[in-house]
Computed example of a mutant assay.
Amino acid sequence: MASSTSLPPTMKAAVKELGRPGLEIKTVPTPEVLPGTVICKILANYIGKAALGRFRAGDGPVLLTHPSPMVPGGYTIGRVAATSPDTTKLQVGQLVLLEPFIRGRDDSDVQILWGAFEGPSPASKKLAADVWRNGTMADYARAPLENTWALDEARLCGSPADGGLGYAIPELVALPIFTVPFGGLRSVDLKAGETVVVSPATGHFSLAAVAIATAMGARVVAVSRNADGLKRLQEMFPLVVPTGDVAQDTGAIIAAAGGYVDVFAEISPPAAVGSTHIESCMSAVRQYGRICLMGGRMDPKVPISMLELVFKNITIRGSYMYEREHVKGLIKLAESGALKLGKAAGMPVLGEFPLENFEAGLDMVEKHSALDGFVAIV
């Protein structure tokens, strides 16, 4: 039986149209609950550096096409406002994490990023346009049941005196970002006690990878061309700034790690085209080591030494997003207290802005680096 709070007939939403810069706040109908979905009251959306181009430019990056018009957003914390008859566990009023990796229910190879990317195939584009056109930059959002995850609010937000972790809800909105590197590190079976080199280590997803690897009990070596950014991590991790000399940089990584590393987690942005750090980090991987490629580097080819891979029995794994079991595991890691959030993870909330004032939030993101933190649209 469906259950709901009293929902207003209309709501405010940030609407994105291709060819037009920025987002426009509009009054639109509040979505109705359908089988296989819940309606969530949106409490906080994550806005980081990578979102600026998508939100402010007339068109998004070439690879991240989406239907138009659309409501962006998908890295979100909300509260269940209405449930469908086939909901079996979620309750109205429950605090939930919403994440954007939507798969076709009859074909899991059909994949979209809710509120950001319609996918490459005709089937994925149809799924995005016909069903999941609108994301979470709104007062309410209709979300797939399988992308809506219950959170232990008492544990995460409760007072430490009562056994809680004391997080404010906007701090929790970084949790969906952690799912991406967690999925990658789990895909190469990173173990407690192992050493992982993360490169680059000064972006939103790579900072999350550093925090996740630490929570998993691994030792981190941070590599980045952003020397100023790395200085902020120097009290916590061994650091390497690549020089462009592959042999020299490989030696520096091995020296910083105290030996060859077990895992290389690569999370390069498109701007890293031509950088030699991938070669250096790969060469620092030990016999039977693993490499996880998670980045969006746009090189048509990446130099890899075939002989080195063969002679060292190295496994290379590409990792796009994550599996459902990874989201479950991530939430457990956060609720246990092992995974730190907010300032403790080096990812503080720079500011909180209402939907109507999201432009001020984007201004703040633009003035800061990923290492400074992120903005919550609340």
Rank of each mutant, 00 (worst) to 15 (best):
R286T: 04
F264N: 07
P270A: 10
H277G: 03
R286P: 00
S305E: 07
C281W: 09
G289M: 10
H277C: 09
R286L: 04
S268N: 15
S283P: 01
R297T: 12
G295M: 01
S275I: 02
R286S: 09
G274P: 10
I267Y: 12
K301Q: 14
I267K: 05
L309R: 06
I254E: 11
I267L: 12
M306K: 07
A256V: 12
F311M: 10
E279F: 06
E308P: 08
A256Y: 11
L307P: 03
G289Y: 13
Q248L: 13
A271R: 11
M294E: 13
Y260V: 01
H277A: 15
D299H: 09
P269V: 02
S268K: 03
C281H: 05
Y260N: 08
G258E: 09
V310M: 14
A271Q: 10
T276G: 01
K301S: 14
T276C: 12
F311E: 03
G251Y: 02
L309I: 15
G295E: 04
E266S: 15
R297M: 15
V273K: 12
L307Y: 01
A255W: 03
E266Q: 13
A255N: 14
G259A: 05
D249R: 11
Y288G: 00
E308G: 07
A284T: 09
D249H: 13
D299A: 14
P303T: 06
P300S: 14
F311R: 11
P300K: 13
M298S: 11
P269W: 13
V246N: 02
A272Q: 10
I291Y: 00
R286Y: 02
M282E: 03
L307W: 04
Y260I: 00
A284V: 11
M298D: 10
P269Y: 09
Y288R: 14
P303L: 11
M294F: 14
G295Y: 01
T250F: 09
R297D: 12
L307R: 12
V263S: 07
P269G: 02
I304P: 00
S268C: 09
L293W: 13
F311C: 05
L309G: 00
M294P: 04
G296C: 02
A252P: 06
V285S: 02
V261N: 00
I267G: 06
G258K: 12
A272N: 05
Q287F: 01
D299K: 10
K301P: 02
F311Y: 05
P303Q: 03
P300R: 08
T250N: 13
G289A: 08
D249M: 07
S275N: 08
R297Y: 11
G295W: 01
G258Q: 06
V302Q: 06
V302D: 00
G251I: 08
M306N: 14
T250C: 08
A271S: 15
I304W: 03
Y260W: 02
A247V: 14
